[in-house]
């Protein structure tokens, strides 16, 4: 027997009136939504218990049930097959280390990006190749949007109100993609983190938009990664001051060139960690350094008394998350973090 739906029902004249009502009530991201009728929500839920409870979404701490996730997934334009990914994404965001309360309410522009690994990414045709961080692909756009709508409607992350971001960024519409495992010369991210290759996972990581790193000139790992480190060394992003995790996404052509010199992913991380550094005299003009700042989030070996000391971008090489994604072309990207940890969560299907 089907479990009853418990959400408040709202009678309207027609679907257009529903879309306008949701706009007027501030229940959307500024774009029209698919009206979540009971029939569509039931179809989205399938065999899930509508009242299964996942937790409270900060900062409003609205209760997240499967029913509420399904309503927001319908609004975003998702297929029912996408719901397990959304559930896992919400679970990842609700872990303490992710600090969703802070992510949702900070003045920084960050928002979670979600990376899907494993066979489900291919089954659902989540784009991992050309244009994977842009528009035009329903799985990426609608699952990413559903997670954002959940953050807004259940979590109350309303821009300019509880979401205090000075600017925000375009990823606050949708920011979900998959690793290009087929064209990566290395093990996928989820395998690196201890999952089986046949598992599917979603990784949530709060960050800025991608910064492009163009290198058409070099095939040598040192030369390619010197350019990547140069982009990472840009001052003003949070990592140099707050640490946490940071993320580099190498395009398949860059990754392949690097691997042809027998570099492993770990070599990439170590090189970037050693090279993407700034002397304290440069850092003091940005971020939260300043005369009053305690400067205590760097590793202990950073000599605060010497302005020539080179501070690392994050505490350890393993705090640099390296993915492979994108299509043809020699452009990689750097996504500076907010200063917290990425969280990987298995997707249960």
């Amino acid at each position: 027997m089907q479990q009853p739906l418990m959400s408040t029902t709202i009678p309207v004249d027609d679907p257009i009136a529903a879309m306008e009502l949701f706009m007027d009530n501030g229940w959307t991201d500024g774009l029209p939504v698919v009206p979540p009728t009971p029939e569509l929500v039931r179809r989205m839920l399938g065999d899930y218990d509508p009242q299964e409870f996942l937790g409270y979404i900060p900062p409003k701490y609205g209760g997240a049930t499967m029913e509420k996730l399904a309503i927001n997934a319908v609004m975003a334009g998702c297929k029912p097959a996408y719901l397990p990914v959304i559930i896992a994404g919400v679970k990842a965001m609700l872990t303490e280390v992710f600090n969703l309360h802070g992510v949702q309410s900070t003045t920084h522009m960050s928002t979670p990006t979600f990376v899907v690994n494993g066979p489900l990414a291919r089954t659902l045709e989540i784009n991992s190749k050309a244009g994977c961080l842009g528009s035009g692909f329903r799985p990426n756009a609608t699952m990413g949007r559903a997670l954002r709508l959940i953050m807004m409607n259940l979590g109350g992350g309303i821009p300019g109100e509880t979401d205090k971001a000075t600017f925000g960024h375009p990823g606050k519409y949708a920011y979900l993609w998959a690793e290009n495992e087929e064209e990566s010369p290395w093990e996928p991210f989820h395998v690196e983190r201890g999952f089986r290759a046949e598992d599917s996972t979603i990784t949530a990581y709060s960050c800025e938009p991608p910064h492009n790193i163009n290198n058409h000139a070099e095939r040598d790992p040192f030369q390619i990664l010197y350019g990547v480190a140069g982009a990472m060394k840009g001052t003003g992003h949070n990592n140099f001051y707050v640490m946490g995790d940071t993320m580099v996404v190498l395009c398949p052509e860059h990754a392949t060139s690097i691997a042809e010199s027998n570099w492993r992913k770990r070599d990439v991380k170590y090189y970037l960690w050693e090279t993407a550094r700034q002397p304290l005299r440069e850092l003091k003009y940005n971020g939260m350094y300043g005369a009053e700042y305690k400067k205590n989030f760097w590793p202990r070996w950073v000599d605060r008394s010497d302005e020539e000391t080179l501070a690392p971008i994050v505490r350890t090489p393993d705090d640099i998350l390296v993915f492979v994604a994108g299509g043809q072309g020699r452009h990689s990207v750097f996504m500076p973090g907010w200063g917290t940890r990425a969280v990987i969560q298995k997707i249960e299907v």
Partner: peptide
């Protein structure tokens, strides 16, 4: 759950409950 005779009904995406004592 409210009942209605309207020709078109949608469900609220807003939370219906919050932590006790929160």
């Amino acid at each position: 759950m409210a009942q209605t005779s309207s020709p078109f009904v949608v469900l609220s995406p807003q939370p219906e409950f919050f932590p006790r004592g929160g």
